[in-house]
């Protein structure tokens, strides 16, 4: 798993992808920080993350679109799947590499709360909550992207399918408010990973929400593993 993680992580920076991603990510968060925190003179990171979350939906699929599809296209999956590594290990290794790139980007954005801490009163618990929630939410998005990438040989198809799935999860919240049946509406809200984020922004590390996110990640990685197992048996 370590070998796969290392290779995959390095490949982001062997190609332009890693740099392009980090550039866009940091440019975007920088602008958000300037507009939201400096523009409105607020020390709270909540609205900053609310905006970055929505933006994340648009740039995270770029990290995962080639994760598995490229291997299949270039037949390098033959190397991975005939090596003494289990399919699960391979999937997790690759997934963690994409998460790793995101974590690098997110770590750099820590300068923003540090700036706030020096010049104002930083709500520490709330900020930590936001960061934990952000990484978990992005983790879910990346796992969905990884799953989509395992389904196809084409990076473009993988990216578009991921966008489709993500836009649908964002819409879940608004769809729920239109459903007259209270029970169904609650279920829809429960299914939406975006809704869960609110807890974190209040500085509450809700155990249930953390488990919810981690389960979703696990579920999609499990689906991805199943895609490989099924293809092997086909």
């Amino acid at each position: 798993m370590k070998a796969i993680f290392n290779r995959e992580f390095n490949s982001y920076f062997n190609s332009m992808l890693g740099y392009v991603f980090l550039t866009i990510f940091l440019l975007l968060t920088g602008v958000m920080f300037y507009m939201v925190n400096i523009g409105y003179m607020t020390a709270s990171m909540t609205s900053f993350f609310a905006t970055v979350n929505n933006a994340a939906v648009f740039f995270l699929p770029l990290l995962t679109m080639r994760l598995f599809s490229e291997d299949r296209k270039l037949k390098t999956d033959q190397l991975l799947l005939t090596s003494p590594v289990s399919t699960g290990e391979m999937v997790v290794g690759k997934y963690l590499a994409s998460l790793g790139v995101l974590v690098v980007g997110t770590a750099i954005t820590l300068v923003y709360p540090i700036i706030i801490a020096f010049s104002g009163n930083l709500p520490v618990a709330e900020t930590i909550g936001c960061y934990v929630g952000f990484i978990l939410l992005c983790g879910v998005i990346l796992s969905i992207g990884a799953f989509m990438s395992s389904l196809t040989e084409s990076q473009i198809v993988a990216a578009i399918a991921t966008y489709g799935a993500l836009i649908f999860t964002i819409m879940l919240g608004s769809v729920a408010s239109f459903v007259p049946n209270e029970v169904i509406s609650q279920i829809l809200l429960w299914l939406s990973p975006m809704q869960r984020f609110a807890d974190f922004t209040l500085g509450i590390l809700n155990f249930e929400s953390i488990i919810y996110y981690i389960s979703l990640i696990g579920l999609f990685l499990f689906f991805t593993t199943m895609v490989f197992e099924k293809r092997r048996l086909k």
Binding site: R7, S11, N14, S15, L74, T76, D77, Q78, L79, L80
Partner: peptide
């Protein structure tokens, strides 16, 4: 048949 090579490496 097709060597499984990572072209970026």
């Amino acid at each position: 048949e097709i060597p499984p090579l990572y072209l970026d490496m």
